[in-house]
Design a protein around this nucleic acid. Structure first.
Length: 257
DNA sequence: ATGACCGCTGGAAGCGGA
């Protein structure tokens, strides 16, 4: 079972890029973030024509997340992260596919830092940690996939001091990610490749793609039952080099199910 | 680097993203 995650940065603006990637790489499950469309604007028909059924939550202009599954409909289990009834941002969707619970996450960016946006990021992270704890305790196979907007360690970003104040690299952001891992989750891509660059994002600005100055922001966390089933994984870097690309590339893993 | 990008809203600059 091949599971992928991609921050698409507007699904309708990049629909041809998305369909081209799905056709070529054929993930069984694809988690998407930053749909940037209201619920009714989601291109469900085009995706169905390409062989994918979907569940999604969306809002105008910002955020929005989806789970696609090839050849079968994902079974929706949650469309929001528990813990704050006043949070209306569409950043979490969860569904079961072939016996695996898939959570698609778009964690808040948190810039500028410090400030209310960074506080929202950390509060959202705490809600995720609480929910993830419940999922671990449930003893079921779970993949937490998505754009965490966290650079976990210094080796997950090109060498620079210019981003020292950025929310993505703050000690509080990294500490929250480590606390999540310590519940028993496995950082799948880092388990496969313990050291070295594993970029999934290159800023549009400053020609970062051509300089290959990227960051690792998109992660797969595996529950204890799934970690031993991890076979392979990587980043589809070619997608970032296409015309009209998102600033993220897809990351993927395969599980022996 | 107060950076040179990209997309959105609204109908101009300003915001958000990372």
């Amino acid at each position: 079972m091949k599971i992928a995650t991609l921050n698409i940065n507007n699904i309708n603006k990049r629909l041809e890029n998305l369909l081209g990637w799905l056709e070529k790489e054929k993930p069984d499950v694809a988690c998407l973030q930053e749909l940037k469309t209201e619920h009714r604007g989601f291109p469900a028909g085009a995706l169905r024509s390409s062989g994918y059924e979907a569940v999604w939550v969306g809002e105008r202009s910002w955020n929005g997340v989806a789970i696609l599954a090839r050849g079968q409909p994902p079974v929706l289990t949650r469309s929001e992260l528990p813990g704050d009834d006043h949070d209306n941002q569409t950043r979490y969707v969860e569904a079961a596919v072939r016996g695996v619970l898939i959570a698609c996450i778009y964690l808040p960016n948190g810039n500028p830092q410090p400030g209310p946006k960074f506080a929202y990021k950390l509060a959202w992270f705490e809600r995720l940690i609480a929910h993830a704890s419940d999922l671990i305790k449930a003893g079921i196979p779970v993949v937490l996939a998505g754009d965490y907007n966290v650079v976990p360690t210094p080796q997950d970003i090109y060498p620079t001091r210019s981003l020292d104040k950025n929310a993505l690299v703050q000690p509080a952001s990294r500490e929250a990610f480590q606390r999540l891992l310590r519940q028993g989750w496995t950082d799948a891509l880092r388990k496969l490749q313990p050291t070295g660059p594993l970029w999934t994002f290159w800023d549009y600005k400053f020609d970062r793609w051509n300089a290959d100055k990227g960051m690792r922001l998109d992660h797969f966390l595996l529950s204890p039952q799934l970690a031993p089933l991890l076979l392979d994984g990587g980043v589809d870097r070619w997608v970032r080099g296409e015309e009209n690309a998102s600033d993220h590339a897809p990351a993927w893993i395969t599980l022996k199910l």
